[in-house]
Amino acid sequence: MHTNLESSLPTGPENAPIDQQYQHKTPFQLAYQRFLKNKLAVVSVFVLLAIVIVCISAPLLTSQDPIETDVFNIEKSPTDEHILGTNGQGQDNFARLLYGGRISLIVGFSAMFFTLVIGVLLGSIAGYYGGKVDSIIMRGADIMLMLPFLVLVLTIMAVIDKVTIGLFVTIIALTSWPNLTRIIRATYLSLREQEFVLGARAIGASDVRIIFKHFIPNAIGPIIVNATLMMATYIIVESGLSFIGFGIPQPTPTWGNMISEAQNIRILRDHPEAWIPPGLAILITVLSINFIGDGLRDAFNPKSNRR
């Protein structure tokens, strides 16, 4: 081991004592280490990966078509051919569960991605420049938050004739940026006053460079955590809207419109195998995303004490 003399000498990171090695880790590596300590979050990563892989490999797991209707096989109980039976249009429930997972996950992910782009962009502009631009953007956010999210989205859906996946994602992203924008703006307001920003400006860094090189990396913790939790929310939102008939329309399968079959009392009563699996799929997916989000929050913010 090291003597006192040795450890006081400057050495390379490989030979340094453990606490000194720790100093050389990037914030990301530190966060990664803390994340690995949260067992629930790590297990959730694997559960989520398993769900994604199963949905991607849908054609390998079932030979049934999720869209093809079969009028002679309506509301059938499970058989070897149709593992979870068929729905009101004679479509295979198991195939719809797998292919529907793809749509639900894609919708959740892309809605999250576009909200992130809009939210970070507007939040950055508002928080960095302040003044008039800031108040215009934030008043816009206030106005968007005045109507309950669902009421706003439903009113917009009423205006639109045919909802497609792209349109659906756009509507979600355009109506739900305000929360993220507020969070990012608040982070920037405190960053703006710090001296390294003044330093960066003094050596001639452009606004764009300061935002991308200094501000976003400093706000990356809240951004990633919120993005994760947003994706979980959007999966629930998609399923809820599809359930009441305002989401992705038939024949495209999603977990939400599979559950909406249960509005028919016969299916609700006699065919729980048709609507319980997609519900459980949503529950497990959202639960694991939330656990991952919590793990990330603790990983990026070591001061947050889990109690």
Binding site: S239, G240, F243, P272, G279, L283, L287, N290
Partner: peptide
Amino acid sequence: GFLGLAIPNFFFGLIAIYVFSI
């Protein structure tokens, strides 16, 4: 708490109807 925030409320409602009503 975790379950209550992760379960879509319409799915919970359907289960409630299925179990307690039907």
